[in-house]
């Protein structure tokens, strides 16, 4: 954590670096490359942005992409957290499921695209499935690690206070105790899921979407619009991560001291 007094000059340094890069980029594009197909200039990109804004599809693109992302991350939460809890709490389940998880986990999410199409067709759910594959493993592994790291004294204190059954111990002790780590897993998952988005929309599951439009404008050779969508993808990804972080901080800062999230 940086203190406020030190933050102010840092902030300005960051802004001036961005400005510097934009000026350099403009100069290189206009004086050196001189070909907007190879390198559109910031001015080109900005005017393309205004065009797209006027065409009124940007919000729809963002909406559809968030839908794909939401399906993927939502499914990853619904599947990943229970599996993480099962293998984190029950040694038998760990021994049973661990080999399967370790075999499937290294397969890149994008390698699932053919089966996503075969199983789910060209639908929003198919795009969500690819994102799900990317997002589910960080959630499983962090939930598992959180459960394995529960201090024994919490479980024993719980037992002595009448929290005996596995179900109650999981609900009242294990889950809250490992919540910071579960939240970290969700944050990582959301990052990975967002990375999978462009590829998930590449095979034409929808008429809108940030990834879909990126490919669409590439096919039209409108590279300035491609850059607009690149920047949008980056900004929204950043925003999502930022929202997660605020949520995590607000929830856990009051009882977390010196733990990492």
């Amino acid at each position: 954590m940086k203190i406020r007094g030190k933050n102010v000059p840092d902030w300005w340094l960051g802004v001036s670096a961005i400005i510097l890069v934009i000026v350099l980029w403009q100069a290189v594009a206009v004086f050196l490359v001189k070909n907007p197909f190879i390198l559109p200039s910031p001015v080109d990109v900005f005017s393309a942005f205004l065009d797209l804004l006027a065409r009124d599809t940007l919000l729809k693109d963002i909406g559809v992409s968030l839908l794909h992302f939401g399906i993927g991350l939502g499914a990853a939460l619904l599947v990943g957290i229970p599996i993480g809890i099962l293998i984190g709490w029950y040694r038998v389940m760990d021994a049973f499921l661990d080999p399967i998880i370790e075999i499937i986990r290294p397969i890149p999410p994008l390698a699932w695209i053919p089966f996503a199409i075969v199983w789910l067709g060209l639908t929003n759910v198919a795009a969500g499935f690819v994102i799900f594959i990317g997002a589910v493993f960080p959630i499983i592994l962090n939930t598992y690690a959180g459960f394995r790291g529960i201090p024994r004294v919490f479980v024993e204190a719980g037992k002595m206070l009448g929290c005996i059954r596995d179900r109650d111990l999981i609900r009242y002790i294990a889950v809250p105790s490992s919540l910071p780590q579960i939240a970290t897993g969700i944050r990582i998952a959301s990052g990975v899921g967002w990375m999978c988005l462009v590829a998930a929309e590449l095979f034409g599951v929808s008429r809108y979407g940030l990834g879909q439009k990126l490919w669409h404008y590439y096919n039209l050779h409108q590279m300035d619009s491609v850059v607009v969508y690149m920047i949008l993808l980056g900004m929204i990804g950043l925003l999502l991560d930022w929202l997660f972080r605020i949520y995590i901080d607000r929830h856990f800062l009051k009882w977390r001291t010196g733990e990492v999230a």
């Binding site: 004294v153 809250p176 919540l179």
Partner: peptide, 13 residues
């Protein structure tokens, strides 16, 4: 009832 040697309060409560 028991009071443990190490701190056993639930930090999330």
């Amino acid at each position: 009832g028991i009071v443990f040697q190490e701190y056993s309060l639930f930090p999330w409560r």
